[in-house]
Amino acid sequence: MTHATDTDDDDTPAGPPMPAGGKNYITQAGCDRLRAELVQLLDVERPKVVETVHWAASNGDRSENGDYLYGKKRLREIDRRIRFLTRRLDMAVVVDPSLHHGKDQVFFGATVTYARQDGSETTVTILGMDEADTAQGHISWVAPVAQALLKAREGDEVRLRTPHGWEVLEVLEVRYPVPVP
């Protein structure tokens, strides 16, 4: 018998959806972070939760056993994240942005400073979908701003479609990490 609390919502994504074509471009550092999270879930968190659920189940009545109910819910969350990370890593295409060091054209991994029409300047780094963190200035390569900037060169103007219409951005600077020998 399946209880409402025991259902698993596999249709709920645990992260941003993949773009058409299924490429999951990512830096080596981003891939390493995903792999470390997967190992942590598999080797540390999941075994602890399984142990707690096993202990709670041995205490008898499971219908009002908070440790058991919470443990089962947490186990489903962990398993969903494990499936998500496994799929993402299987589709990962690791890109080394330092290969473009010294170039002025925008590709994956570039740190780009651009000016808006109002004169304000913004600096972003174009990374993988699983590396995006707007608070850090890291945007996904599928983000509209990134799509507008990709393949542009320093000094180029690009058009960005916004909810308020078209905006022109001027590419001021393009940087890449220094290659590590």
Rank of each mutant, 00 (worst) to 15 (best):
Q28A: 15
A29K: 11
A29R: 12
G30M: 01
G30C: 06
C31F: 10
C31I: 00
C31N: 15
D32E: 05
D32M: 01
R33H: 03
L34V: 05
R35D: 11
A36P: 07
E37S: 04
E37Q: 09
E37V: 03
L38F: 00
L38W: 02
Q40E: 14
Q40H: 15
L41T: 07
L41P: 08
D43M: 09
V44P: 01
E45M: 07
E45L: 01
P47M: 04
P47R: 04
P47W: 04
P47K: 00
K48R: 13
K48I: 10
K48S: 11
V49I: 14
V49M: 07
T52K: 07
T52Q: 12
T52N: 10
V53S: 04
H54F: 08
W55V: 10
A56R: 00
A56I: 06
A56T: 05
A56H: 00
A57Q: 15
S58V: 00
N59H: 11
N59S: 13
G60Y: 06
D61I: 02
D61P: 06
R62H: 06
R62K: 15
S63F: 05
N65L: 02
N65I: 02
N65C: 07
G66K: 02
D67W: 11
D67E: 12
Y70E: 11
G71R: 00
G71L: 00
K72H: 00
K73V: 01
K73N: 03
R74H: 10
R74A: 15
L75Q: 08
L75D: 01
R76V: 04
E77M: 06
I78V: 09
R80I: 09
R80D: 12
R80T: 06
R81A: 07
F84A: 08
L85Y: 04
L85I: 09
L85R: 08
T86V: 02
R87E: 10
R88T: 13
D90I: 02
D90E: 09
A92R: 00
V93D: 14
V94C: 09
V95A: 03
V95W: 05
D96L: 04
P97V: 11
S98Q: 07
H100N: 15
G102F: 07
G102S: 08
G102R: 02
K103N: 12
K103R: 13
D104N: 09
Q105F: 13
F107Q: 12
F108K: 07
G109T: 08
A110E: 09
A110M: 10
T111F: 05
V112N: 03
T113H: 00
R116Y: 08
R116K: 15
Q117E: 15
Q117M: 14
D118T: 11
D118I: 08
D118V: 08
S120T: 14
S120G: 10
E121K: 15
E121A: 14
T122Q: 13
T122H: 12
T122L: 07
T123A: 03
V124P: 00
V124W: 00
T125L: 06
I126E: 06
M129H: 06
D130L: 04
D130A: 02
A132E: 12
